[in-house]
Write a protein that binds this DNA or RNA. Sequence first.
DNA 1: ATAATTGCAAACACTTTGCACCTGT
DNA 2: ACAGGTGCAAAGTGTTTGCAATTAT
Lengths: 135, 135
Amino acid sequence: MSRYTYNTKQKTLIMSLLEKEKEAPLSCDSIVAMLVSEGTPVGKTTVYRFLENLAAKGEVRKFVDSHSKTATFQLVDKSLNCAEHMHLRCVDCGRIVHLGCEFMSEVGTHIFEHHGFTVDNSKTVILGKCENCKE
Amino acid sequence: MSRYTYNTKQKTLIMSLLEKEKEAPLSCDSIVAMLVSEGTPVGKTTVYRFLENLAAKGEVRKFVDSHSKTATFQLVDKSLNCAEHMHLRCVDCGRIVHLGCEFMSEVGTHIFEHHGFTVDNSKTVILGKCENCKE
DNA sequence: ATAATTGCAAACACTTTGCACCTGT
DNA sequence: ACAGGTGCAAAGTGTTTGCAATTAT
């Protein structure tokens, strides 16, 4: 494992894409495609590796679609304290909602006390459809 | 799409394995391996196809591990009305808990009313660790 | 200088498909 | 008889790895 990290233009490019599209998660392929069409291509290996690193450091959240099996990544907004609440994700548009409200914070407690489970907020994603995508 | 379905010994073998192991989901590979070691091998294509059919008919629930990306399948107990509640899954042992209690049924309502999302119970799996697997 | 990073091509793991043969009804 | 099912081998998909060249410090 590397002990230092260098700043490279590839990392900067990927990062700024993630920042620009922070509403919904991006797949590695779409990042590669976007960078190509911006005239600043980055090798797909680099994209996979960098996103996996960010996910390991908790700077990015990784989702896996159960049908396509494609991984998608979204920047974690540190000011939101995402480790403390669950998330909702629209199966159609990918939009994420942070469930930081009072009521939802009781859910973890309830599950622990009544069902003997310790919920892992970083892995749990409640799936459904948002208002816009409801048919 | 087929209009009729035949009963075959392969389907029967896979079904009885699912019934025997209904506590935790099984991967296609493990089903293939188990059937081989029981002296009644079934082609892996058949296993994949049959499980996918069962999942489409809602007789089996499909999970996708976000790390290994392996799909696992578990028989749905129809008497439990799984469409009406969320599920909890232990990330270590795979055990499933049905959240059919009063409190949890309010969660869907809360999310709809306060966050504008319609939760899809068939797709949602809350992840965490069960009592046994807690370190 | 030298450790980290890049990116190609090749390897991988899981799953799906084409197709000729087999089986249940 | 014939629609449905099986299973091999081959193709597909998304991701990871080996490695030689490149770049940041």
